[in-house]
Design a protein around this nucleic acid. Structure first.
Lengths: 232, 232
DNA sequence: AAAATTTATTTGAGCACTCAAAGAAATAGC
DNA sequence: GCTATTTCTTTGAGTGCTCAAATAAATTTT
């Protein structure tokens, strides 16, 4: 460390405006979460250390501890961050779908294969954490909270859709579970296949299967999922 | 260690027969794989060390290295072991199903929810390794080999079944992918739900969905999956 | 200058793996 | 049949390294 020019020439220009402080913290946290994600994708969770995060962020190891207290909490925030991106996606898709349960269900399924949620990076993060979830209550809890909200949304849409055609709540729950299983399983294949299966193909398969399952609304649902439905 | 009776009473019966030596190696390997599995279930993969394996096996740390060269190779053998148990299960189920593609497909689906394959212990091991698979080519390779054999079996059964009723190979492949996604997704739910969902319920859901998907053979397939088909 | 933030260094625990030696079983020599 | 020799197993303290976390130092902001 050599002498750096001490004080700026007294003038104005505080290259850093007002709310600098609090904004800075949020920025740093985001930066560290992104760097941790990058390291998990490149090295796996087990080989992601404060050193790899520090290298990916360009910051020192101390910063991560300063903003997240310890490595475990940083990791938990990474998981939460990815779930929140996903949740924002499907919640807003659902909101835009309006009142029609067919469109609602289609929106939820489409969201699952939106490249913003269903991409290698996100899948690697999810699987990395799921793999350790049974040994880390903190990870399991975060997954639970978000998964159950998504479950509820799917089941609610299924219930409205099926009750319209005179089926029971029990059938709606089973159907919801099946749709979730189908999308989870397609994620699994997208994750493990080395780029062989894309999110786009996942969506097509999902549409195809779901169409078979809802005889009464299958065609319309499938069209809505694929985005080929004509506007009303 | 106190005095143990030195030589056996000269008679026949050498409490340890001939191949003692080579059998010993197989026994030890099995013992170490079981101990590693136990530690992964209890501590997670990341916190499974040679020390936890040694504690679980009652052997010294050195033995694990002696029989498996290093920790990574021991872990790889654990993954392989679980895949082999699973593969033996579905291969023999398939063999017993005879020539009827409906029974073959049912047998494959039933095997996926057989408690011998689909239990918390096995799921924890699988998810632990899948979580690291993208960062460890060795794990990815083992998964690939076994997954693709299973895929092929499912697709073959689907093809025979669908071609019987005049559908195309393309449809059979899509259907196979869908069935696999469904079972993978149900595994996912069984794994992450804290015992809320059992293998038995998974099987019921799978039967229900698959029945909807094969209009021509759905009823029979469903009955075969649930084991409620009457004998011919 | 006082407080807040960032960077750099130190520390001590825990890790995989080594290795020399001991123990046990199989084989050979008498 | 008995002992000596060799081969195979097992042990566990030891080695060097990596890591998370703590601490200290420097820098910036107010």
């Amino acid at each position: 460390m050599q002498a750096t020019t001490k004080s700026p020439p007294a003038g104005t220009m505080p290259a850093r405006p007002r709310k600098e402080r609090s904004e800075n913290a949020a920025r740093r946290r985001g930066q560290l979460i992104a760097a941790t994600t990058k390291s998990i994708v490149e090295n796996g969770l087990a080989r992601t250390t404060l050193a790899t995060v520090s290298a990916a962020s360009g910051l020192s190891q101390g910063v991560a501890v300063f903003y997240f207290a310890n490595k475990e909490k940083l990791f938990a925030e990474v998981l939460r961050h990815h779930y929140e991106l996903y949740e924002r996606l499907w919640v807003s898709a659902l909101a835009q779908a309006g009142d029609d349960p067919v469109r609602q269900l289609a929106a939820l399924i489409r969201a699952d294969f939106d490249p913003a949620a269903c991409n290698q990076e996100a899948l690697i993060v999810w699987y990395a954490f799921w793999g350790e979830a049974k040994a880390r209550p903190r990870y399991a809890e975060i997954s639970d909270i978000h998964d159950s909200r998504h479950s509820d949304a799917i089941r609610a849409a299924c219930a409205r859709l099926l009750i319209e055609v005179g089926r029971s709540q029990e059938e709606a729950d089973a159907l919801g579970a099946g749709i979730e299983a189908l999308t989870d399983g397609l994620w699994h294949r997208i994750y493990l296949s080395h780029g062989t299966m894309s999110a786009r193909e996942g969506l097509r398969l999902a549409a195809r299967f779901v169409a078979n399952i809802f005889p009464e609304r299958g065609e319309r649902l499938s069209a809505e999922i694929l985005g080929t439905a004509q506007e009303a």
